[in-house]
Design a protein around this nucleic acid. Structure first.
Lengths: 204, 204, 204, 204
DNA sequence: AATGAATGAGCCTTCATTCAT
DNA sequence: CATGAATGAAGGCTCATTCAT
């Protein structure tokens, strides 16, 4: 088996296919987790859904848990990146804008990554790897708030971040509830509650 | 109007011994669900933990799902009863008192019934029997708020109930987070957020 | 607890109830066996169907097998009695009458005791108690034929009894087949085949 | 037109090893069904008897029922093929030859596939897939008879096929009865009865 | 005698994971 | 790297039968 000089090019298409495979597998996994939850999802089904053999799946993800964590990590990166975009503009936002953007952010995030909540809720061990996603997002939130309200102590900012995060979850939960009668109104109220709260935090 | 199969006991205990057994089984189930979640809990282990044979467990609960639903129903009854006690006194409460009592209520409820959240979150089908617990509690909340703020329309009250419920969940979530640094402060802030919101609802 | 002189009368109602119980249990068992077969029938269901407690059932029938055998024995008695009625009149029957009566007999028997076939076919051990029903009926058939064709040797009569019995089963099977197109015609042909055969047996 | 679930293999073997496994499993299943009947047979035992793990068995047969149906289908194919061989030669057979061949056919079939009868008799649902084996064989018989007795109407041929099939069963039943005294003679008589009947059908 | 709770061996089936090809 | 057969521990559930009340 002679190896020419451009070995890397030779393997490139292989890597290419590898990436596609991994992407397909993660996507299939996401779909399964949404529909069946963590326990209800079988490795066999994930593989089948991605058009891959079960052996292939295990070549990339040594464990079901690893598969789930990879998905979670992917989501975390996306969330982190998205939230990071708020750094600059948020300095000038009113409390209304803050509430609006934060709520919209989590709602959109959950829509784009529908497997996130089911996975977090149904996994046996809540992602022991490093800091949990929620903790990481809270830290980011904290940094955002700190820049906007520099007169507040670290403790105050931390508490505010915690509260705001819970309210974001509330907003997202309202959004997700299927067939709720006055969802629009409730959603608006939730957002208003956050705005009022932030007003107090930012205010003189 | 026969009650739903999934909540029903296969046979209701008709002797002294039977009632004791059922109670012991439910308690054991609760403990297991807390520790392992729904899927992670084994019928065999539940039975063993209750000092009963596996067959005895199935004598009363035809299915693992039925067992979980029975537990959930029990919790629902307890929550409903507890919240009902607020009916009278809440008429004179300030918004501070409302926030305090509501937060304390859910925190205490979760402490007394630790299996509630894990069960709700990890069960495959979120308790299809009748109205879900959360919906039922929301209705109760709505009734409470309606009496306190009679000048608000039904829609406004409903939205407020939804928001308050989410904030209660937020408070409970903060309380439950293990080893969070400034939990006290965050908790206080969460409660304050609810108070401020309710103040607006109850209006001048 | 004073026992007066007429103890028997005292107990009579009890015996009466006992008989009713047994009858009800056997009937319930028959119905279950028809619908579910031997293995598919549960002692619990039999008891429930008879409006009795499971313990009651076991008071009369120590075993599921015993229950089935009791039923079978009951059927055997009925069949035996019925066939016995042919002894006198059959001496003057033509071969047509023989074929007609014999076919009609088994068909009627199966209609009146629908559990018979399912039970015989689905029981693990084909009723080891004494001679099997089929063997007993064959003996009776043999006796009947022997009186009608005294010029035939025992061996000939035995073979004829075997053949006739199989043809009776054939006729009954045809009758039982649900929704067969030309059942009437097939039935008639089966009967005719038996008649032709018997004609040969009886013939000079 | 996807074939019925109950007969289908969960996955068809795609490698050498797979085919061997399936064959071994079917054979083991046959042996078990003969000895214990459908209900009495354990999947575990089938697997063990085939020298396979329980998981391997389920890799190919998703259900105990599917396993039994696969076996039945295999038998049906064999019977069909065998009976098909009669097409040509049977045109010149005498009624004696017909009776002899037909009886011999079923007897040989049952000897070669001893699981057939126990399976048919002890399965809960008599093989709902497509036409039952018996119905299929009857159709084949009908075709055979139609060619030999073209002067008979369809109705007559159908009835004859039904009757002949029952007599074949009778012959096989006699053959199968263990330790019957004059089996040879009875067998001969059964065959003779069929011959006489066919003589009438064929005769002008 | 009647009742119904108790028992536990055993059944069918699933599924994460491994490994030979 | 891909493939798919192999593995077997474990889980949910059934049911004939026993026994205390």
């Amino acid at each position: 088996m002679p190896s020419h000089k451009s070995t890397e090019l030779r393997r490139s298409p292989q890597r290419q296919r590898g990436h596609e495979r991994v992407a397909a597998l993660l996507e299939a996994a996401g779909a399964c987790f949404v529909e069946k939850g963590y326990e209800g999802t079988t490795m066999t089904e994930v593989a089948a859904r991605a058009g891959a053999a079960i052996g292939s799946l295990y070549q990339f993800f040594p464990t079901k848990e690893a598969l789930a964590n990879a998905l979670l990590e992917q989501y975390a990166q996306a969330a982190y990146a998205e939230l990071g975009k708020f750094a600059e503009p948020s300095l000038n936002w009113t409390s209304e804008a803050w509430a609006e953007h934060l709520c919209a952010f989590l709602i959109a995030f959950r829509r784009h990554h529908p497997a996130f909540v089911p996975l977090v809720e149904s996994m046996p061990k809540p992602a022991a790897d490093g800091l949990s996603i929620r903790r990481r997002l809270r830290a980011e939130l904290q940094a955002l708030l700190a820049r906007r309200a520099p007169h507040r102590s670290d403790e105050e900012i931390h508490a505010a971040a915690v509260v705001v995060q819970q309210m974001m979850k509330g907003a997202a939960a309202i959004q997700a509830e299927p067939g709720m009668p006055g969802r629009q109104a409730a959603q608006a109220q939730m957002q208003r509650a956050m705005q009022v709260y932030l007003h107090g935090v930012f205010g003189k």
